[in-house]
Amino acid sequence: MNGIHDLGGMDGLGPVNPAKHEPCFKEEWERRMFGLFVSCFAGGHYNVDEFRHAIERMDPAHYLETSYYEHWLQSLETLLTEKGVVTQEELDQRKKHIAMEDV
C-alpha cells in the first residue's frame, strides 16, 4: 500500500549526513523507548508487523517531522490504546502528573 513510509526514490529530502561516530541512543528517553518496545513485544501485546503498520498509519507530515524513536512511541501508544491495554485518558493524566512533579 502506498504511504509516506514508502520513501524509495523520493527527491528533495536533503543530504544523508552520515555521522562518523554516534552513540547507540542519543537521549535517555530513546533508551527507555527501545526497552519498552522490546518488553511489550515480549509481553505479546503486538507483533512486529502491527507495530510497523501503526507507524505507517501516522499522518504523513508528522511522520517526516518526527525522529525515529518518536515513530516508535507513536506506534506503541496507538497499539496499546487500541487494544485497551491503556487508555488515552490514563496516559494524559500521568503525563500531567509527571510534568507537575518535574519542577
Partner: peptide, 21 residues
C-alpha cells in the same frame, strides 16, 4: 521535560504499575 520525554515516562510508569513491564 519535553513532550516526548513526558509521554515515554507516562507510558513506562503506567505499564510498570500494571505489572506489564
Amino acid at each position: 521535560l519535553s513532550d516526548v520525554e513526558l509521554r515515554v515516562k507516562a507510558l513506562e510508569s503506567i505499564l510498570t504499575e500494571k505489572k506489564l513491564i
